[in-house]
Design a protein around this nucleic acid. Structure first.
Lengths: 237, 237
DNA sequence: CGGGCGATTGACGGTCATCAAGCTGTGTGG
DNA sequence: CCACACAGCTTGATGACCGTCAATCGCCCG
């Protein structure tokens, strides 16, 4: 939970060769805007488990994940934790008009982000309807995911929760890296539990049940979807 | 669940005297933009329990609630329901870039909305950064609420859920109608249960428990927060 | 080899869901 | 005015699912 930076590059090393150029916010910018935008950004790396920002921090920056995985979570005063999302490369994080973030973000494994100071970013975006529309699009998309997750948390059984998570996580990785039924799980069982509103023991038991039923195979660092049709059925149910 | 319109007024009867003028999307518009905007909108009323739009409908309109209360919900194929939010006057609903809404909205009691066709609205907004920013603001606000609700659904006990709901609902009504610890509850127990991820029986039992403990008094059509400090403590916990 | 951490498994219990009455208030019709 | 019906809510009895507590396993790394 230290928050020291591990590496800093002022003004990135060019957006042109950025891995997430095509599908993040910046996709909405033209060549010239891009050049200007580049000046606002800064590449920053974090080591595994470092906190990128915390719930109570003043929200002075936005982040665009370039590499690695992050978890976003909220803590109750007594320490209960709810993970509200996992972040993959290309995802835009921290957008808010509030004074403080309202949730924390930390690195699951080493992470590189593209960081923007909120104020100059705001000034830059102010007269760029295409960028504003793109940000709207992203916010609405996240809102839809959030609502889907509410259904999961409020109305689904442990088995459905785990299956839904695995299928959803696979689908996100497929978008990013191409089709495969091998699903790497960089996050811990505790993270999965806190994402699904379960305990670590229930997650573990459910994994083994799914394995016994021939739906998945548990591998070191992930699972394989042996019977993705049945997994998807559980997820849809 | 009929969806017939009850009353229609083409081009509203003026935004100038609109009850929610001050705090909805339109707050970001100047006099001249407003005049143009007025032409895009249309006042529509719905009777109690009518569906304003359904999950699978093509998302052709946005809505601004003028009067009444609505519930937004998602249904699983087997009929389980999760209410993802209650809508009060001034709230903006239906914003999406997707083809279909993804959730349903229906009236709890009679309702009046200000309706916009998506396409002309989009064209109108396209070159109005102030409006786009305002929409961003609203989307981000909703996203924050959604995340708070995830914590509630995933990590809180029945008693905390109910207390949090009552306090939160009171606070929203206070914003709208001024301070009071009388909390009208236009929605049914079933609605509350589906919002909190509980059953109707658990909600009912929890209400009576809170009453026995002197925290609330159950009134016809609502409750009174007798000991709002303790209610808030439960909600914060 | 031994320490340590994360994951798994087992035994047990509590919270909340389920099933089933009963209650209350409101509207209807005689 | 009362009987009746009906819908929404409350209450009770029971049990399942999942949380809790605790022991063990497996693996990595010193």
């Amino acid at each position: 939970m230290k928050t020291s930076l591990v590496a800093v590059d002022f003004h990135g090393q060019g957006c042109a060769d950025c891995a997430v150029r095509g599908f993040s916010v910046c996709a909405s910018l033209d060549q010239f805007e891009m050049r200007e935008f580049e000046q606002l950004s800064r590449r920053v790396s974090f080591a595994s488990c470092e906190t990128v920002f915390a719930q109570e921090d003043r929200s002075s920056c936005f982040y665009n994940l370039l590499d690695g995985v992050m978890r976003l979570y909220k803590l109750l005063p007594d320490g209960r934790r709810q993970i509200v999302g996992f972040v993959l490369p290309g995802d835009f994080v921290g957008m808010t008009t509030e004074e403080r973030h309202g949730f924390s973000a930390d690195a699951i494994g080493p992470v590189t982000v593209c960081q923007f100071a909120k104020l100059p970013f705001g000034r830059f975006a102010d007269d760029k309807p295409n960028l504003l529309r793109r940000m709207n699009e992203l916010a609405v998309q996240e809102l839809n995911q959030a609502r889907d997750h509410m259904v999961l948390l409020g109305r689904r059984s442990a088995e459905e929760k785990v299956a839904t998570f695995l299928v959803g996580w696979r689908d996100r990785l497929v978008e990013l890296r191409g089709p495969s039924n091998i699903v790497p799980l960089p996050m811990s069982r505790q993270d999965i539990a806190d994402y699904l509103g379960l305990t670590i023991e229930t997650v573990s038991r459910t994994f083994t049940k799914l394995e016994r039923d021939g739906i998945i195979a548990i591998l070191p660092g992930g699972v394989s979807l042996r019977d993705s049709a049945r997994a998807e059925a559980l997820a849809a149910a």
